[in-house]
Design a protein around this nucleic acid. Sequence first.
DNA 1: GCAATATCTTGACGATTGTCCAAAATTATC
DNA 2: GATAATTTTGGACAATCGTCAAGATATTGC
Lengths: 214, 214
Amino acid sequence: MSQLAVVGTRMLTGAKPHKPGAVDKIAARRIELAEAALETLAELGYARTSLREIAQNSEFTHGVLHYYFEDKLDLICCCVRHYKARCVTRYDQVTATARSRDQLLSGFLDKLGETLRTEPHMHRLWYDLRSQALFEDAFRDDVREIDESLENMVWRVTSRYAELGGKEIAVSRSALYAVFDGLFQKHLLRHLSGDQDAVSTLQEEVRQLMPMVA
Amino acid sequence: MSQLAVVGTRMLTGAKPHKPGAVDKIAARRIELAEAALETLAELGYARTSLREIAQNSEFTHGVLHYYFEDKLDLICCCVRHYKARCVTRYDQVTATARSRDQLLSGFLDKLGETLRTEPHMHRLWYDLRSQALFEDAFRDDVREIDESLENMVWRVTSRYAELGGKEIAVSRSALYAVFDGLFQKHLLRHLSGDQDAVSTLQEEVRQLMPMVA
DNA sequence: GCAATATCTTGACGATTGTCCAAAATTATC
DNA sequence: GATAATTTTGGACAATCGTCAAGATATTGC
């Protein structure tokens, strides 16, 4: 019997491990494997990703996955949770340092374009996993949590933008996030379809939009 | 050798069949099978849908699918195309008959709620397939076409709404569609998660939004 | 340095997948 | 009503899937 079940229970209940560092080691490997899984998922999509393919993108063999994860769903849930940490602070630097409305907008647009240009695969994975949550209960809580984090992120940026202009945000949190999310998703598809202007078009759309919402 | 390849070529090139009615018959069966496939896809999602499962939801066996479709991708592409026809005119009746701003808004919200309540599975399939287009080239053109149709639909409704108020739409077509699409997707997830207030919350969000965009 | 534990590899399993094909069943044609 | 063409069936195939367990290897505690 592997120690996983015990460790898993510990992690869920928050009980302390008998041996200090043991959980950390296991957790570290779980994250390592989850990151390899994220790469594979981003490349192939949820529907085409197998455990063997994930293992091949790591430095281990496929058997080890069942040593650290209950099953495939457990692994992918771990991926989703780990994915979150990457995203939610993406624009905080811009928000914190910008000293004018234009500066904030420019910094935001730059970062937005950079994200679309350098990480399209990771973002298409997000949309894929969010769609999976529509079918699979196990994903729903995590996906909702990430969605909320992203909503908060958009709200923070826009709040600062409004503040710098002495204005108030004119739409609801949901609507604000929805419009940014929808625009990003649309131009992500364009970008992946080979549209060279996708990045600049997105930036232009957002540039026109910002003064309307705050 | 089946006639499919010939028929397929005919359909692509638009050449006339040797025997009148032969293509229609084949096309009709293709649609019949595509509709059975749509039901299965809506139930299980793209990742978990197999050809045998699709056939079981139809009145045929799994072998017949390869008589009418090149392969699985061909079948699902046919599904996507067929799906489109159902959606794009959903709100046209409301737009055509409404004689006041309030009437249009109420009719739109009613239809929106009814859609979310009665067809959540078909809509989660749409979001699933749109995400698949981020990975699979074969879906991209069809998905883009559907997206455009939906964008136009939203634009038609909002245009009429603006017209009835003697106003102009204040945002771009992309942004307008993005915000509606994003809000719908969010509340679809809520609704499928068992949130009883999802429908009314969506309606309330849209009710607040409409006067802001037109 | 030995025993015990933890970690990893490897191969196997039953099930399922998309695809293909020969034959049966059905329909159309004369 | 016989023949030909079309449509459908159902089984076989190779490949791949998630899962599991036994054994090899590495690490730790004493």
